[in-house]
C-alpha cells in the first residue's frame, strides 16, 4: 500500500528563516508516529503544511496519493496547538458543526466521551477553562474515523493526570487502519504508545526508526535516545 503521507524535497521559508529545508519523508498506514524535536525544530510547520494552513516554498506534500486540498481534508483530522473554537457556541453546536462538514464524524462517540469527562454539552465554550476546551477539541478530533490524525502537542496544556486519559482516548478511539502523527517534546509521556519515531531538528529530519528497533538495536528508550541526539 502507498504511504499515507509523503514529503518530497519539502521546504518552507518564513522570510529569510528556513523552517523546513528540503525534507524527504514517508509515513506508512496504521502506525502511531511520534514527531519529536526540540522547540522550533519545524514540527508545527510540517503539520500545518499537511493541513494546507501554510503553503510550501518548495517541494511536494502528498496525502493518500493526493496533493493537499479539500479531498485530503476529508480524511485528515487535525488537532492544532491552539484553541480554534469560538467562544459563543455551545458544545452541542460545535458538534453539529463537525457533523455537518465531516462525513466521518461520529456524533454518538463524541457525546459518549463528553459524558465520561463530565463535560456538559449545553455549556458554552466561553465558560470553560483552557484545559477543558482542549479536551473538547480532542474529543471532536478523535470522534472522526480519519485516515490520518495530526495531533500537534495534544498533551502540552493539561496536567499529568489528564495526560493519561488523553493518551487513552487517543489509542482507544482512533481508526485502527489510520495513522496518528503526534508532535511533542514530552516524550516519556507518550513513549509507550508509539510505533515509530521521527526526530526533527532545525528543519531537517535527523532520524526515523521504529521504536522496537531502537529498543533492540540501541538498547535504549526513545527518551534516552532523544536526550542523546538533541544534547545541548
Amino acid at each position: 500500500m502507498s504511504p499515507i503521507l509523503e514529503c518530497r524535497n519539502l521546504s518552507k521559508k518564513y522570510g529569510y528563516k528556513e523552517a523546513l529545508s528540503g525534507i524527504d519523508l514517508s509515513v506508512e498506514r496504521g502506525r502511531i508516529v511520534g514527531l519529536l524535536g526540540p522547540n522550533g525544530s519545524g514540527k508545527s510547520t510540517l503539520i500545518k503544511l499537511s493541513n494546507g494552513l501554510l503553503t510550501p516554498t518548495n517541494g511536494e506534500l502528498i496525502i493518500n496519493n493526493m496533493p493537499v486540498g479539500p479531498e485530503t481534508k476529508k480524511i485528515v483530522s487535525y488537532l492544532p496547538e491552539r484553541t480554534y473554537l469560538n467562544n459563543w457556541m455551545k458544545v452541542c453546536d460545535i458538534i453539529d458543526f463537525f457533523a455537518d462538514f465531516y462525513e466521518n464524524f461520529d456524533k454518538n462517540k463524541a457525546y459518549e466521551m463528553l459524558k465520561r469527562l463530565n463535560i456538559n454539552a449545553k455549556d458554552r465554550l466561553k465558560t470553560m477553562s483552557k484545559g477543558t476546551k482542549e479536551k473538547v477539541q480532542l474529543i471532536l478530533v478523535m470522534s472522526r474515523q480519519a485516515d490520518l490524525y495530526l495531533l500537534d502537542e495534544p498533551i502540552g496544556g493539561v496536567d499529568p493526570a489528564a495526560r493519561d486519559y488523553i493518551l487513552n482516548t487517543i489509542i482507544s478511539n482512533y481508526n485502527p487502519d489510520g495513522t496518528i502523527i503526534i508532535s511533542t517534546h514530552l516524550i516519556s509521556d507518550i513513549e509507550q504508545i508509539l510505533d515509530d519515531i521521527i526526530f526533527i531538528q532545525n528543519g531537517t529530519i535527523v532520524k526515523t526508526a521504529s521504536v522496537d528497533d531502537i529498543r533492540s538495536q540501541e538498547g535504549k528508550s526513545v527518551d534516552a535516545l532523544f536526550r542523546e541526539v538533541f544534547r545541548c
Binding site: 494552513l53 484553541t83 480554534y84 462538514f101 465531516y102
Partner: peptide, 13 residues
Amino acid sequence: CDEGYLMFTLPVK
C-alpha cells in the same frame, strides 16, 4: 485568526 485553523481544515474550497 485562530478560527481559521478550523475553517481552512474543513473539506471546502
